[in-house]
Amino acid sequence: MNKIQDYQIISNVLLAKKTYEMTLTGDFSWVKNCGQFINISIDNKFLKRPISICDFSENELVIIYKVVGYGTDFLANLKVGDSINCLIDLGNGYNLDLVNDKCLLIGGGVGVPPLYSTCKKLVEKSVKVSVVLGFTSVSDMFYVDKFKELTSDVFVSTNDGTYGDKGFVTDVIVKNNLSGMDYLTCGPEVMLKGVHKLMTGHGQLSFEARMGCGFGACMGCSCKTVSGYKRICVEGPIMQSEDLLWND
């Protein structure tokens, strides 16, 4: 299968402040793991934009993105029936075989999406899933109800206290005594760092980076880990907690 594909948009709707959910139709049988990403071409821009997969089936794929610049604004202005050109089947994804009988999912902002399909798969595997979601404010919030349909154990924090607990996801984890659990997480790096320092269970953490190619050729997104240099686009974006080194 050619790894550059055009997919037609069947839905592109505003979910929360500047945050859109786009659904694509086509052949998505190539998706191996939750937490993989696609790299989307943007008209008049040199580099593609890496966006994580939120949800997928054999013939539909959902992404969620926040408008932060030219590329995401371009996506937001696409209409149903338009197509996007993508480099597909990128990144390692979460290894759900490493998850035991219970697990905590921790998502921050636009890091929440890949945890949605992850939550679905884990629930299918009869894993007892707890979820902590963090947003800046209630206006940024999305998918809380969809997670609640999958598990009763959903905690939410907002930085300004406009919904759920005021503070960060780490405050919620401490308050509810969840720091010993195994966890899967995705969010801004500062959140990942806080989560990694706090949690004592095994973790799988999803990173983002300014990427060149997205498939391992340019070394633009390398990071240092305990087991050597890794490319966030190929050996990641999911890194294992025991492998992480932070630049302090």
């Binding site: 821009k45 980076a209 300014r210 060149g212 340019c218 633009g220 997104c221 390398s222 990071c223």
Partner: peptide
């Protein structure tokens, strides 16, 4: 290892 990230910036 090379340089610290970010290592990539887009241009026209």
């Amino acid at each position: 290892f090379g340089n610290e990230l970010p290592r990539i910036a887009e241009c026209e």
